[in-house]
Simulated scan of single mutants.
Amino acid sequence: MSTKKRTAILISGRGSNMQSLVAAARAPDYPAEIVLVASNRPDAAGVAWAVEQGLPTVIIDHKGYGSRAAFERALQSALDTHHVELVALAGFMRLMTPEFVAHWQNRMINIHPSLLPSFKGLHTHEQAIAAGVKIAGCTVHYVRPEMDAGPIIAQAAVPVLSSDTAETLAAKILKVEHRVYPAALRLVAAGQVCCEGEKIVISSEVSQTNPLYSPVI
């Protein structure tokens, strides 16, 4: 019997981070198994990709529900059907109710394209350039009811050059997202991450050569 953590990926768009997680999970020693891809948008490009890969998929169109809670009940039903143990948000553009987040406390993770707590919300790359920062990056964190909040599991940084635009910065950050998210999910699924209050403690067994420990890429 497999001991891999049964993991669902939630998407709203093309799902490029989903693809990186799926690729990582194909390794025999990876501790998470992708058992479901769920989208709240029927036109999400990532759904077609997931179907092509033979992954179980479900579309739960949030527009078909009268409330956020009703949508989440349908989503939870799908997660229960597939016996999901961990949830990874990969460009999932819906805020969760406190009740749903509490149900998945420390079992639901997200990736955000900034070095949180800086530049929450949308247009993160424009925010970074407008602020004149010299380092930007991405953050993997446990989900909390507040937007883009929660204990930080992993971060990776890239330099911001004077010649960078929002588009070039986004492309640089996306490359490191595709490395850091699978590495972070590996740690979570392997039980090498724990929360002490609202701070993360990573097992001392984790090698310092892990991608999570590359501060500037």
Rank of each mutant, 00 (worst) to 15 (best):
residue 59 I to M: 06
residue 18 M to Q: 00
residue 189 A to Q: 07
residue 163 S to K: 05
residue 5 K to A: 11
residue 205 E to G: 05
residue 75 L to A: 14
residue 80 D to I: 04
residue 112 H to A: 01
residue 119 F to L: 14
residue 111 I to M: 02
residue 39 S to C: 13
residue 88 A to R: 01
residue 80 D to V: 09
residue 75 L to S: 14
residue 209 T to G: 05
residue 59 I to C: 15
residue 41 R to N: 08
residue 168 T to L: 09
residue 5 K to N: 06
residue 76 Q to C: 11
residue 23 A to F: 00
residue 135 I to V: 14
residue 204 S to V: 00
residue 99 E to K: 02
residue 48 A to M: 02
residue 114 S to N: 10
residue 138 C to H: 01
residue 46 G to D: 02
residue 216 V to D: 02
residue 83 H to F: 02
residue 60 I to M: 13
residue 161 L to E: 11
residue 39 S to M: 09
residue 28 P to M: 07
residue 79 L to V: 03
residue 54 G to R: 03
residue 180 V to A: 00
residue 73 R to I: 13
residue 193 V to D: 07
residue 4 K to H: 06
residue 124 T to D: 08
residue 33 E to V: 03
residue 134 K to E: 04
residue 155 Q to Y: 03
residue 191 G to K: 12
residue 194 C to R: 15
residue 57 T to F: 09
residue 44 A to G: 12
residue 171 A to L: 08
residue 70 A to E: 13
residue 139 T to H: 13
residue 139 T to Y: 10
residue 19 Q to D: 14
residue 49 W to P: 05
residue 112 H to Q: 00
residue 65 Y to T: 01
residue 165 T to I: 07
residue 136 A to T: 02
residue 185 L to E: 07
residue 99 E to G: 00
residue 76 Q to W: 10
residue 13 G to W: 15
residue 106 N to Y: 12
residue 39 S to A: 15
residue 92 F to W: 10
residue 73 R to V: 11
residue 113 P to I: 00
residue 196 E to G: 13
residue 151 P to K: 02
residue 216 V to M: 14
residue 65 Y to F: 14
residue 201 V to E: 14
residue 1 M to I: 01
residue 36 L to R: 10
residue 78 A to L: 13
residue 42 P to C: 10
residue 118 S to V: 03
residue 77 S to A: 15
residue 59 I to W: 07
residue 116 L to N: 06
residue 92 F to P: 09
residue 62 H to V: 02
residue 141 H to F: 02
residue 21 L to M: 08
residue 144 R to T: 15
